[in-house]
């Protein structure tokens, strides 16, 4: 199972947004898509999901062009969590999550036992099972984010594309969500997640793809991708680097400028 973009060019209103980007994600991989605001991350993710047609280049799912795969099959194999998603009506959380089962249901068929089980699993994993009877207006933005993540998980697709899945979450739930994404990828799902928190992205992802001004400037293991020159060129920041007692290394965005000051460690 592999989703691949080859030499993708995407234009929106005749403005080039992505310029020849390629990316490949396979089963069991957690890929972080990072980059400054306006780099084209969201457009890239939408293109991977088949929501924006590429100007040139192509997207392949197991070698087949995405555009040649029937909609319902695509919907079962590719789950998408979009960034701007809200919940339009005061629907119960359990029903919102159950929307993720729509691609699996035949016309007019009610939720099957398997659907109910998938919904319950997704709610438990995203820590929203206790919210199941609550409705939209009473959810906090973090709770809403987790509900929508649960909705995407309920699809139980082979590939999960998530746009900023942890942005609205508190630190505890950010850690939970990253743990969850890693656990799901270890169970076989291929994941591309747009992330802004470089510390968490570097710590949890198998690979980081760095996007800058519509081009990919790095695609490697986090330690190899987030070098000092790249962070300065792409993000305009410098980071602190350290090593936890258990041997894992971490980075921490520290300065806006390109250079570390002398009084810093």
């Amino acid at each position: 199972m592999r989703l691949a973009a080859e030499e993708l060019q995407v234009r929106l209103q005749d403005r080039p947004i992505l310029d020849g980007v390629s990316l490949s994600v396979g089963s069991g991989e957690l890929v972080g898509l990072v980059g400054p605001n306006g780099a084209g991350k969201t457009t890239f993710l939408r293109a991977l999901a088949g929501l924006v047609p590429p100007f040139t280049g192509r997207i392949l799912l197991d070698g087949r062009p995405l555009s040649a795969i029937p909609r319902d099959e695509r919907a079962r194999r590719l789950a998408v969590l979009v960034q701007s998603a809200g919940i339009g009506w005061p629907m119960r959380v359990a029903e919102v999550v159950a929307l993720g089962r729509l691609p699996h249901r035949r016309a007019f068929a009610p939720l099957s036992e398997a659907d109910h089980a998938a919904v319950a699993r997704a709610m438990a994993r995203a820590d929203v099972a206790h919210l199941r009877e609550r409705a939209e207006p009473s959810l906090s933005s973090g709770e809403r984010m987790r509900v929508l993540l649960a909705r995407a998980l309920a699809v139980e697709a082979e590939i999960l594309l998530a746009d900023e899945p942890i942005t609205a979450l508190d630190p505890a739930h950010q850690l939970d969500a990253m743990d969850l994404l890693r656990a799901i990828s270890r169970a076989g799902t291929g994941i591309v997640a747009v992330l802004h928190d470089l510390t968490l992205a570097a710590r949890f992802c198998d690979r980081l793809v760095v996007l800058s001004e519509g081009r990919i400037v790095a695609d490697a293991r986090p330690a190899l991708a987030l070098t000092d020159p790249l962070l300065q060129a792409a993000f305009g920041i410098s980071v602190l680097r350290g090593t936890h007692a258990d041997g894992t290394s971490y980075i921490l965005p520290w300065h806006r400028s390109g250079r570390l000051r002398e009084d810093d460690p």
């Binding site: 999901a49 088949g50 909609r71 919907a75 998408v80 929307l99 016309a107």
Partner: peptide
């Protein structure tokens, strides 16, 4: 009916759930 359910989460999500 089902497309309207999916559209509660926006057009992108509805499209990703397989609705034309």
């Amino acid at each position: 009916a089902r497309a309207l359910d999916a559209l509660a989460l926006g057009e992108d999500t509805a499209a990703s759930l397989g609705f034309d």
